[in-house]
Amino acid sequence: MRYDLVIFDNDGVLVDSEPISNTLLAGYLTELGHPTSYEESVRDYMGSAMHRIHELVEERSGQRLPVDFDEVFHARVFAAFQAELEAVVGAAEVLKQLAAAGVPYCVASSGSHERIRVGHRKTGLDAWFRDEIVFSAEDVGRGKPSPDLFLHAASRMGVAPERCVVVEDSRLGVQAALAAGMDVYGFTAMTPEEKLAGAAGFFRRMDELPTILGL
């Protein structure tokens, strides 16, 4: 099937940010008295918007995170991005092929617009993303697994949900895409297939994606 729109998740799909951000998140939560391992951070928070972190911590501990939690966490993440962040291998080549084939694409991320832009500038992927094709959970209020973000992106791009395909690497993202009525393919470089149940297919290297998309 040739799709009318390819929607990319950002963290872990376009930029190799998940190891960095989950290491920092686990460390910060532990500092604040909520012991969290890297593996637990990946399991519970990978692919989620910031509000989910607050909700889960309060649900489990009965305590609210500090009011400046997001600000402090993002400052640490952005500093680490500037030092360490790289694009996912092959991501720029896939975007180049999509552009050459005239296939519309966009990014729909649980991260903030600032986080998306910081990562894209550091990795050079900003060359492939105009502001009008960058969508964040900030735009809709509810992040993944709610379908709101993907439906918002499809609407803004003028494409029916059933003509969209989503590229995801998180359980929450796959759930959101399915809830939106979209096909979704699971990127398994970091996430095992069994964690991405419901995806139409799986791929481990980004250079496999063009074949899946029929380019």
Score class of each variant (00 low, 15 high):
2 R>G: 02
3 Y>S: 11
4 D>T: 06
4 D>R: 15
5 L>T: 11
6 V>F: 13
7 I>L: 15
9 D>C: 11
10 N>P: 07
11 D>E: 14
11 D>N: 14
12 G>T: 10
12 G>L: 04
13 V>R: 06
14 L>C: 03
15 V>G: 05
19 P>Q: 13
23 T>G: 02
24 L>E: 07
25 L>W: 00
25 L>I: 07
25 L>Y: 00
26 A>W: 02
27 G>H: 06
28 Y>V: 01
28 Y>P: 02
29 L>K: 05
30 T>H: 04
33 G>R: 10
34 H>M: 06
34 H>Y: 13
36 T>E: 07
41 S>K: 03
44 D>S: 10
45 Y>P: 04
46 M>D: 05
46 M>W: 11
46 M>F: 09
47 G>F: 06
48 S>R: 15
49 A>N: 07
50 M>H: 02
51 H>V: 11
53 I>C: 05
56 L>P: 08
57 V>P: 05
60 R>Q: 12
60 R>L: 05
60 R>H: 08
61 S>G: 01
63 Q>W: 01
63 Q>V: 07
65 L>N: 02
65 L>T: 01
69 F>P: 05
70 D>L: 13
71 E>Q: 13
71 E>D: 13
74 H>W: 11
76 R>D: 00
78 F>G: 01
85 L>Y: 00
87 A>G: 12
88 V>H: 01
89 V>S: 14
91 A>E: 06
91 A>I: 01
91 A>V: 08
92 A>C: 11
92 A>F: 05
94 V>Y: 07
95 L>I: 05
95 L>Q: 10
97 Q>Y: 02
97 Q>F: 00
97 Q>A: 09
98 L>M: 09
100 A>R: 15
101 A>E: 14
106 C>H: 12
106 C>W: 03
107 V>S: 11
108 A>H: 13
109 S>N: 03
109 S>I: 03
112 S>H: 04
113 H>C: 03
114 E>S: 10
115 R>E: 11
116 I>M: 15
116 I>S: 08
118 V>L: 12
119 G>F: 08
120 H>G: 08
120 H>Y: 15
121 R>I: 02
123 T>I: 10
124 G>D: 12
125 L>A: 11
126 D>S: 14
126 D>E: 15
130 R>C: 13
131 D>Y: 11
135 F>C: 04
136 S>K: 01
138 E>L: 01
142 R>T: 13
143 G>P: 03
145 P>D: 11
152 H>N: 11
153 A>R: 05
153 A>F: 10
154 A>P: 04
158 G>W: 01
158 G>M: 10
159 V>D: 09
160 A>S: 14
161 P>W: 07
162 E>R: 09
164 C>E: 12
165 V>C: 13
165 V>F: 14
166 V>Y: 09
168 E>T: 06
169 D>A: 09
170 S>L: 03
175 Q>C: 02
177 A>V: 09
178 L>C: 03
181 G>H: 00
181 G>E: 00
182 M>K: 08
183 D>L: 02
184 V>Q: 05
184 V>N: 13
186 G>E: 13
186 G>P: 06
191 T>G: 03
191 T>N: 02
192 P>D: 07
194 E>H: 14
199 A>H: 02
199 A>K: 08
201 G>W: 01
203 F>W: 10
204 R>S: 14
205 R>I: 03
207 D>L: 01
207 D>M: 00
208 E>W: 08
209 L>D: 07
212 I>G: 08
213 L>F: 07
214 G>M: 05
215 L>E: 08
